[in-house]
Write a protein that binds this DNA or RNA. Structure first.
Lengths: 219, 219
DNA sequence: TCATTGGCCGAACAAGTGTTTGTTTTTAGC
DNA sequence: GCTAAAAACAAACACTTGTTCGGCCAATGA
């Protein structure tokens, strides 16, 4: 399912012939019981989210799970590939959540609203992985930037579809609509504070504002 | 005019008595002919905007203006204070631009629109300074974070006023309105591409969407 | 003309960076 | 129980990071 060309460490290099056609799906490496890759990813997500990519050192990441810096390079060829893995998982989680939310809804506007709420919940109250997707700029990680952009674009395709389904007057600029909505949603990461704000309420409010406009007086 | 408690280098320390009342406005240090502080700030803004704070080293900054790393510390006590200076200048520039734009407009909605367009122009097509304000997160620069937040909050007060002036139905949540609008505007930094997109058009479009809502069919 | 000092150089410092390599321990399959 | 691979250790490497500090020189105001 992995679409990023994630550069793996040397020991996991492609088997043999450089031009072997019919490459197997390459079953995920056995995965033993004692494998701290999940914890490694969790910690990386936590720190990348809180401090960004350049603001987080590999020592910081491995320290909190009692691992040594060098051990990271058994799992990933470089720090940037660790970020790529976290990012991919983040996109995966948001996608799942959003797709799940819209599946049970009918009606273009209700589906869009459900998607926005799910997007926000994942972004504000859920996992660190999702937040990394919004927090870290692909340009900060040159080696894997194209992969990250591709992932994000593919995710936003969901919203392209949702907006396309809206019953709008002919000639309406649906791109602006989408960009405005997603921008407002994503930026909420800046001002959102748990307890004070509520993801569901924000999502509903923003969609309503976009749908009906701001309520004008004496109407 | 400086509101950030910008920690200056040692040679510019407060004169003498620790508890001297009636402190002079402290006229800006003489500023000789040969002073490359402006170029230093320009380069810092350029790089902080493109690569973020942690992604930019002090050597990178001074190198492009043929300065040595140590010389930076004649002007600033720390790298973080350089960022603070750039940030402050950025807020100053956006503020000037926005205030200038709304001064010549009457009518609450027209003023808001003018402000958004000016905000976007500064953010997308104008100076690096303004972009730093949106790009760099205060949390990335702990030592001066409070100052940065205060600056940004003070700037956003302009929009609080503009939104407060809108003729809306009683009970409308003006905070959501403002957050949605500013969020959408700020996030445009992510997808905007010079040539393809146009700041003025984006501003007009977003304000229109917020005012009237999306145009529904057969109305 | 001369003392003053703003502005910067030159050279280093200690700490931290991502990464490599050889080796050891642990686990799974036969 | 033996073996082969997985997973991680231990210890370094080469380099970059932000920062310090003494000295130097040109410009400035008297």
């Amino acid at each position: 399912m992995s679409t990023t060309d994630l550069r793996l460490p040397a020991h996991a290099a492609r088997s043999s012939a450089p031009s072997d056609a019919a490459r197997k799906p390459r079953a995920r490496r056995s995965a033993r019981a004692h494998n701290r890759l999940p914890q490694l990813l969790d910690e990386a997500a936590r720190l990348f989210r809180a401090q960004g990519f350049h603001g987080t050192s590999v020592r910081e990441i491995v320290q909190s799970i009692d691992m040594l810096p060098g051990s990271l390079y058994y799992h990933f060829a470089a720090k940037e590939d660790l970020l790529a893995a976290v990012y991919e998982e983040g996109v995966h989680r948001i996608s799942e959540r959003v797709l799940g939310a819209i599946a049970s809804e009918t009606g273009a506007w209700r589906r869009l609203e459900a998607a926005c709420i799910a997007h926000l919940e994942a972004l504000l109250e859920d996992s660190d992985y999702a937040q990394v997707v919004i927090r870290v700029r692909p340009a900060d990680v040159p080696a894997v930037a194209p992969s990250l952009v591709a992932l994000r674009d593919r995710y936003e395709e969901i919203f392209v579809g949702l907006v396309a389904a809206l019953p709008l007057r002919r000639g309406t600029d649906r791109r602006s609509l989408r960009l405005m909505l997603l921008g407002a949603l994503n930026w909420s990461q800046t001002w959102y504070r748990a307890g004070r704000d509520d993801a569901r309420a924000i999502g509903r409010e923003f969609v309503a504002l976009l749908r009906h406009g701001v309520p004008s007086p004496r109407t």
